[in-house]
Design a protein around this nucleic acid. Structure first.
Lengths: 205, 205, 205, 205
DNA sequence: CATGAATGAGAATTCATTCAT
DNA sequence: AATGAATGAATTCTCATTCAT
């Protein structure tokens, strides 16, 4: 008795994460989490109000990282058409993603694939919408600076591209076997592909 | 009676589909399906071995359509580098998809977003893998015919593009508000974007 | 297995009534009801949607009797000032109540004293309000026929008298030891008391 | 510290009262009381042995007031048949009640309506019994002084009248909207009604 | 083919209370 | 005096499935 509170909390979160990962939010059972964490079922409720709160606590670090990323991505100095040629920028951007993936692989799996039934089940939509808005704003600023480019792009196309980000994320985390090399190669291809695409669609020479 | 039986089966499937759509595989309850279909709960088991079999039956038409599409996509006459310029081909291809969407909107939602816990929960992976293999085969044939093109593309990149298909599908079916016009516009953008991308990456002049 | 459905339903209701009587709505446990009724806990839910529905089912006959009583009490032919002298009417009225009591003693106890937490917890108020409205209507009709009487009586006084009815009911059912004789004597006293009261307050000579 | 302790005790009682008022004895939870009182759950048990003891402590001031009232009501100088004509006495009597109501409105609600499950759940009976005995004693004294009056009144009738007191109390405290005016008017009506009733039943000219 | 009945395991959550510190 | 931690039993309710008829 009288074990360190923090340690138990961590233990609960640790096994909860594993259960969510294996069985999804709905499938994971408080019973199993409790017994694996070696905590009495009822005692869990001294640490977390309910199952959903555990779920959110498990994903909190990841969500914070997302928020931070969004803020950084918005920095003004990126506002240049040269970024289409600037492989460094592209890679930096994606490497940030890779970093998140390395740190939060299981959390990402949970968030993207196992959150049905929880209060975060709509994260994908929420994220995509936010990302879409951000991208539109970015394009507008770009247009202000480079009036010759075309930004008459369907909202839904923007949306789809935003969503694609999460798809890529999902694909990466679903493939445990990927090595850094593979990811490198993927990044190269992806950059070429999407840069060419964007340039064409925006009519950039 | 023969007709009688068939009608009940259809009724079960009809309401099961609706329940799966609203609550997901796990969340849907046999009781609710039974009562809505006006069939006794136990009688359902005379038509379907278990919940999962109902789920599969609901999605069977869609899965067949997928299979058919795959076979058609593989036809030899498409094997030309001109297809990159051939907007008709592109649009025909996608229109086929649109057709599937129109016919199977709810089934797609179920398959892509509500299948967790069922035996089809891995469909996304399965489909993507198959599509990737197919694409690779296609690229190889293309290379045989046009040796100058580059097909040294990372497997994972292929995979991601394949997966993107499902993402696009998912996005479209998630946006009930999209009108044909919107989709048209999206298709135009998408075609420009991805054609430019592919040409660049394959080094096609 | 395959026991008579009706018989089981009755058994559940029988023991549920007893549990509610002893422990109140909240205190009664589905477990105990089930085990006493020799029905599996989960099977109860094939007969009743939830605890509250059982509670209502237990009290349904009583509530119906109440409704019936109200309708009958409203008959026009009672509209005479002579009723204040008419012991027969008074007693008939109350004998009807006594009848209800005899038939529904335990249901009344449950309804009046043990319904906290259930959907019928406000029955007392509901009944009193309805009875008050009815009484006011009755007085108005009386006034129309006998303009000399005073019906300028505080609403709250009417309310209290209405509520008193339930109090009397409650008292009677709380005293299992009362014999018919006792009730007879009570009725005599009550009639004298309240008739004198009403006459005075309405200024009837 | 002495003051410190007392303050905590009061805080516990304050919020316990509120919880009992809103959720009843059974529905109120020690946890909620503790957290609202800003006292650790376990510490409550240093102040009160258990939930029931808190409940009693909450109602103690009211119960004392009741006791005091009973003793005062018993004073010999009231022993006069004139009290039936003496409106001042009647009103004084009831004003005393009103005073209790003003001071103990919430406690009364708790005691009368929310005490089920506690050791005070039978207060209504207890009080009524005591009041009945008192009333009988009072009548006997009166008979000794005024032999011509009739006190051959059924025990149960006495009981019911005693119980009526609590009903009136309950009605008043249940109607927060009542203003002093309304109560005044009610008192007038009530006095007329019951005085006439008692005189008739006791055969007082 | 149809069904009413039944079930046992399981779900999340809440509870008053205890106890070592 | 105070507390954080713990607990075990209890709560209502849901589930997919089975089986005798």
């Amino acid at each position: 008795m009288q074990t360190q509170k923090e340690e138990i909390r961590e233990r609960i979160l640790f096994y909860a994460k594993d259960e969510f990962l294996k069985k999804g939010f709905k499938g994971a059972s408080m019973r199993d989490i409790a017994s694996r964490a070696d905590v009495s079922l009822s005692n869990i409720y001294n640490y977390f109000k309910n199952k959903d709160k555990i779920f959110c606590a498990v994903l909190e670090p990841l969500l914070e990282a997302f928020d931070k990323m969004e803020k950084e991505h918005n920095r003004e100095d990126y506002l240049s058409i040269e970024i289409f040629e600037d492989e460094d920028y592209q890679r930096e951007n994606i490497l940030y993603f890779m970093n998140i993936i390395k740190k939060f692989r299981s959390e990402l799996k949970i968030l993207l694939f196992m959150s049905f039934g929880s209060s975060l089940e709509n994260f994908r939509d929420t994220f995509t919408d936010r990302h879409t808005q951000m991208s539109i704003g970015y394009l507008k600023s770009l247009k202000a600076k480079y009036p010759e480019i075309n930004i008459d792009i369907s909202l839904f196309f923007m949306h789809t591209i935003s969503s694609w980000w999460l798809t890529i994320l999902g694909e990466i985390i679903s493939h445990d076997e990927l090595k850094d090399n593979d990811i490198e190669q993927f990044l190269k291809d992806y950059t070429i592909f999407s840069t060419a695409g964007w340039k064409k669609i925006m009519n950039v020479k």
